[in-house]
Design a protein around this nucleic acid. Structure first.
Length: 214
DNA sequence: CACCAGGAATGTA
DNA sequence: TACATTCATGGT
């Protein structure tokens, strides 16, 4: 753990936002659905799409048996609905291999599951890691656009590709589901508050080095 | 009206 | 390996 920058940033974010213990979903399967639907899509639109599944949220049995046009129509607000309908079918097929049983999934090694998810249509590295970490509580660090942006702004040269940045984070932080879960959540929370067109500096937890508002 | 949001697949060189 | 294009709704 040669570099303590990450721990420092995490600490600052933690003092501002607290322990988030994250992912806005009620069930593991809803995490899976949300992870797919949020691909390059604003979360507010994902919420609308998820609401369209009804009071109890999306169920794997429903997605597996729904007709494609019907499924696409339900998730329409999330955008890319034709693609994502296919993606939901495929990731649900993967889950079906475990009888939609979270406990059965968790019996397998993380790397094996990650490999399976990555070979699933519509599941790339970020979606795979989001599912593993937030649906199944497995210790893999999620890298997203916000994380890359944070590295660029601080700055931290964690690498250029997904796997490089992921390796940097995992190599410079103590391994653990709780930390991985919360840190990524904090990065997202901070990004939503400070980035883009919100000129704000007073409460920026990153203090100096944050080029989004400092 | 232009830009973009918690990506991934596909095609080209 | 390194980019470019496509997919699409809804908020700012």
């Amino acid at each position: 753990m040669g570099d303590k920058k990450l721990a420092s940033i995490c600490k600052k974010l933690l003092s501002r936002y607290g322990d988030l213990h994250w992912w806005p979903a009620r069930t593991p399967y809803e995490v899976i659905v949300g992870a797919v639907l949020t691909q390059n899509t604003a979360w507010a639109n994902v919420e609308k799409a998820i609401a369209n599944f009804g009071e109890d949220g999306p169920a794997p049995e429903f997605v597996a048996s729904a007709r494609m046009p019907k499924l696409a129509d339900i998730i329409r607000p999330a955008g890319f609905f034709n693609q994502k309908a296919v993606y939901l079918k495929s990731v649900t097929k993967w889950f079906e291999g475990y009888d939609y049983d979270v406990r059965k999934v968790k019996r397998e090694p993380l790397e094996k599951l990650r490999g399976e998810l990555l070979s699933t249509k519509g599941v790339g590295p970020e979606t795979a890691d989001s599912i593993l970490l937030y649906a199944f509580d497995l210790p893999t660090f999620v890298i997203d656009a916000y994380t890359m942006r944070l590295c660029g702004r601080y700055p931290i040269d964690a690498g250029k590709t997904y796997s490089q940045v992921k390796a940097y984070f995992e190599g410079n932080l103590p391994k653990g589901v709780e930390l991985y879960n919360n840190f990524h959540a904090l990065i997202v929370a901070n990004a939503k508050e400070h980035c883009r067109k919100k000129p704000l500096c007073a409460g920026c937890p990153l203090e100096r080095g944050c080029k989004c508002c400092c």
